[in-house]
Design a protein around this nucleic acid. Sequence first.
RNA 1: GGUCCCGUCGUCUAGGGGUCUAGGACGCCGGCCUCUCAAGCCGGAAACGGCGGUUCAAAUCCGCUCGGGACUGCCA
Length: 479
Amino acid sequence: MTVRVRVAPSPTGYLHVGNARAALFNWLFARRNDGQFILRVDDTDQERSTPEFEADILESLRWLGLDWDEGVGVGGPHGTYRQSDRLDRYREAAQALVEAGAAYHDDRSPEDLEPLRQKAQEERLHPGHYIRRPETPATAGAIRMEIPQGESVVFDDLVRGTVSFESRDLDDYVILRSDGTPTYHLASTVDDIDYSITHVARGEDLLPSTPKHILLTRALGGPEPIYAHLPLLFGPDGKKLSKRHGETALSHYRDAGYLPDAVFNYLALLGWSIDGETTIFSRQDAIRAFDLTDVSSNPAVFDPDKLAWLNGEYVRAMDAADFRAAVKPHVEAAVGRTLDADEWGSFETVSDLIQERTRLLPEAGDQVVFLFADIIDYEEASWDKVMTKDGVAGILESAQTLLTALDNWSAEAIETGLRGMLEEMGVGAGKGLQPLRVAVTGSSVSPPLFESLTALGKERTLDRLARARARIDGGEPLT
RNA sequence: GGUCCCGUCGUCUAGGGGUCUAGGACGCCGGCCUCUCAAGCCGGAAACGGCGGUUCAAAUCCGCUCGGGACUGCCA
């Protein structure tokens, strides 16, 4: 039997990193087993579903590289990937269950049922204990599944092993709302049957719903899929990962300059490991090694620091031309305008040095703004605190003289000249180059100095040295 | 409250009775390299929640306990 799995997000929010990881595991499982990975949009909650969220979800999945199999879900046997297009099918299924005696109409409202829940709570029973089929059956209203009593629902979960529930702990749950729309339980179960889903791998939050789905599947006469309940993702405080913990939308990471391969790699590491030793691996390596039974059963904490580190590893491994192309919009964003070919050329002379120093693409922009900013704010600049004002002034003056006379504006020539100059002055390079760095880049932290000067050009370098000297002669404090 | 799930360094994990004085990775600390910052290299601190049991032997199996989490909707 062909393996067929699905990812079934609800367009009631952006694609969450937790959902993205669940999708990723499903995708890996499908690819590993030469199966099919299908996309289904669970939009039965018409109130909260929006086209914008749906678009975000699709784009995010594509960006991550989780290509779904067209012709199976999308435009497949049932013509659509949206549950909202199949409402008739769910109604029909619910009606059939009523006729078969497995479900019943219930015209009591949620408020009507509240006292029953209260009573159950007080008697230390599960809250839905008294919500059962009424003596006198209704003919309209919502439709509830009737839970058969005295039954154990047992299943072998691929990540958790044998899990069992007692039917007496399940309440008669709504499958069709009084407005005729299906609830998640019904729509999802009907679709899993209709689309011949073989494995359902989803978040652990749905583990308590699984016996309901199994009972529904049996009542509907469908084959039971194999379940795998994936561990949840938590924030640093141990609570379910949410907006409070920073960005949870996958699209945020795309916009913030993360590389899809790095995010893929990181997400795969949350609850799974390729061999216990290897941290960085390709999609192909992951596919070759993946199995749902190897997924850990305990929850994972999302660690932005490790993601950033991993992203840096991928950035450094990028082809130089790819890096330049990827980083351009971020450099322009940092500079605040588009750069012409000439200006971009000066970035390219230091591109390799920047690539080594970049974890997140936008950082590259921050590192090179000094190349394009017209004014260096010396007020903000941090001068080398170890050096006296006179020392700084002397170095700037000597450097200005030296560089003015320098015809060969190459990093090598600049380096030879400046090092020789400092040696004559009896100043170590470690100390002596800092005033120049600050004067020219406006910061005590910058890409390597000689290459930076090359990229800046002779004219602008000398201009900045002159400005910096003017600042010092003006008697301003140096710190 | 009820049901279910989970418990190895701060975090992600390896481990599945002896090869564990518990391995790898991020982060952290120290050092080297060095024009700053990175990167790289070397080194370090850091964990089997607790208690019982089974066994010659337990991080690994069992029980209890403690802790955490999810669910408990005419949300998904």
